[in-house]
Structures are given as structure tokens and as C-alpha cells.
């Protein structure tokens, strides 16, 4: 079968790409998508190690992560829509009024 490290490596790649998306993209929606990618990288690890240790709890955790992610997306998108109404833009850099 496939060594566990392959899955870990793939997860690392997804994770880093997700972080790069958060840091580099200015479109709030894409930033959000990158967050989903990061979550997915973590999920992949959970499932891989669940199979490795033959523990079902890992898969269940993925299930919970997904529900929470769904809730987060619901609220987050609502926020973005609301912010767009106020600022007429979804540029993350426009939301910079919290500065010292």
C-alpha cells in the first residue's frame, strides 16, 4: 500500500498553498476558499491516520470539522455580503479601519 508520508506530503502541499492564498489574495472570497483548503489538508491527515491506526474516531473528527466548516462558511459569507454592502468592495485591504 501507499506509505503514509505520501499523504502527509500532499497535505503539506495543500496547507502551504492555502496559507499562501490567505496571505497573497485580496479577494475576500478567495481568502475564504483558501481557508477551506487548509481545513481540507487537515482533514486528509485525519483520514490518513485513521486508516493507519485503524481508528474510526479520526474519520468522525473529519465529520465534525466539516459541519463546523459549513457553519463557518454560512456565517462568513453572510458577513462578506454585509461588508460588500457597506464598502462596495470585497477587497480584504479595504477592511482596515482597525488600526492604531
Amino acid at each position: 500500500m501507499i506509505p503514509i508520508d505520501y499523504f502527509v506530503g500532499l497535505s503539506v502541499l495543500m496547507f502551504v498553498v492555502g496559507i499562501a492564498g490567505v496571505l497573497l489574495r485580496r479577494n475576500a472570497l478567495v481568502v475564504f476558499m483558501s481557508l477551506e483548503l487548509i481545513l481540507n489538508a487537515a482533514n486528509l491527515l485525519f483520514v490518513a491516520f485513521a486508516a493507519y491506526y485503524e481508528l474510526l474516531a479520526g474519520q468522525l473528527f473529519v465529520f465534525f470539522v466539516m459541519t463546523v466548516a459549513a457553519a463557518e462558511v454560512a456565517v462568513g459569507l453572510a458577513l462578506i455580503v454585509e461588508i460588500f454592502r457597506a464598502k462596495k468592495s470585497i477587497d480584504v485591504d479595504q477592511m482596515s479601519s482597525m488600526k492604531g
Binding site: I19, V22, V92, M95, M98
Partner: peptide, 17 residues
């Protein structure tokens, strides 16, 4: 030091990173 608190979320994220 105040310049760090520039209000840009991505800047904060970079700091955390």
C-alpha cells in the same frame, strides 16, 4: 511600533505565520 498595527488583515496573518 504602531506601523505594525496597520489594520490590514493580511498583514496580521503574515505576522502570525
Amino acid at each position: 511600533l504602531r506601523r505594525l498595527e496597520n489594520g490590514y488583515v493580511r498583514s496580521y496573518a503574515l505576522t502570525i505565520f
